[in-house]
């Protein structure tokens, strides 16, 4: 039996390798999505970067090919609020990469709001993109993933786990809207549902909850906000986008073959106190 002879177990470098695999990364040109795209490409996966802005995805894919030796990267415009766009995109991604084994849901767009400022329309838009978009994409991609006993990685948020502290936000223009946390909590629970439901097909489903990774523009516009975020966090700082890469490598590869239904927080300890 395998447990008596670890010398014959696969080495971790083999377990982490994604050679011969392909990944569809929704939001693959975004702040964290780009880092995940790079991580998967560095491990040998062919990557398809998808998002509403196809041109942005093309630019990022070109950067990736220039930076990562032997990388194969494609770009694709997909609007996850439109079912027909998802269906066509999933089919096109499978054609470009010869099928895919990894689906990463990292798409986001939305407005800043407080509970008082948010309109019905903004609420619906956030739920549409951040929760319904994940549901639709998984539904469309599951048959492709099932052929290869694939993996799904959803990107949630610390605000799907805990509530924002209103004192962090000095104006509506920086506030984290209530719809965002509600959608992300939904993503964490959907992850668990999909993990148990898709387990018989050999598909593993996990989730990452990033902590504070503010956009560069936010950091420039509001240094006081960044200081408050850092002060609120046990590690005393905001995250660096590349700090998401390690966990993406773990969860998208065979190095996590016994992990499913989990939510891994990369938050500097934000949710530990």
């Amino acid at each position: 039996m395998s447990y008596v002879d670890p010398a014959r177990s696969p080495r971790l470098a083999e377990l982490l390798s994604l050679e011969g695999r392909a990944a569809l990364i929704i939001g693959g040109a975004g702040l964290l999505g780009s880092e995940i795209s790079f991580a998967l490409a560095e491990l040998g996966a062919a990557v398809v970067l998808a998002g509403r802005d196809g041109e942005k995805c093309r630019r990022r894919a070109a950067e990736l090919v220039a930076a990562v030796p032997a990388a194969r990267a494609h770009a694709l415009a997909i609007d996850i609020t439109r079912p027909e766009s998802i269906r066509a995109g999933v089919a096109e991604a499978a054609r470009l990469a010869g099928g895919f084994h990894i689906l990463v849901n990292c798409g986001w767009s939305g407005r800043k709001n407080t509970f008082e400022s948010i309109s019905d329309e903004d609420w619906n838009n956030d739920i549409e993109v951040s929760l319904n978009g994940v549901f639709r994409t998984v539904k469309a991609a599951a048959p492709v993933l099932a052929e290869r006993r694939g993996v799904i990685l959803n990107i949630a948020s610390m605000y799907g786990v805990v509530a924002p502290d209103p004192a962090l936000y000095d104006s509506t223009s920086f506030a984290n809207p209530p719809s965002y946390g509600a959608a992300k909590a939904g993503v964490i629970q959907l992850t668990r549902y999909l993990a148990t439901f898709l387990a018989p097909q050999g598909i593993r489903v996990n989730c990452i909850s990033p902590g504070p990774f503010p956009f560069e523009t936010t950091q420039k516009e509001n240094p006081g906000f960044i200081q408050r975020l850092a002060a609120k966090n046990p590690l005393g700082r905001i995250g660096r986008p590349h700090e998401i890469k390690g966990v993406a490598a773990l969860l998208c590869s065979d190095a996590s073959s016994y992990m499913t239904g989990q939510n891994i927080s990369v938050d500097g300890g934000w949710t530990a106190w």
Binding site: G211, P234, L235, G239, R240, E243, K245, G246, V247, A249, I264, S265, V266, D267, G268, G269, T271, A272, W273
Partner: peptide, 8 residues
């Protein structure tokens, strides 16, 4: 590789 992960 887990430099921003603590308390988990």
């Amino acid at each position: 590789a887990s430099s921003y992960v603590t308390g988990q």
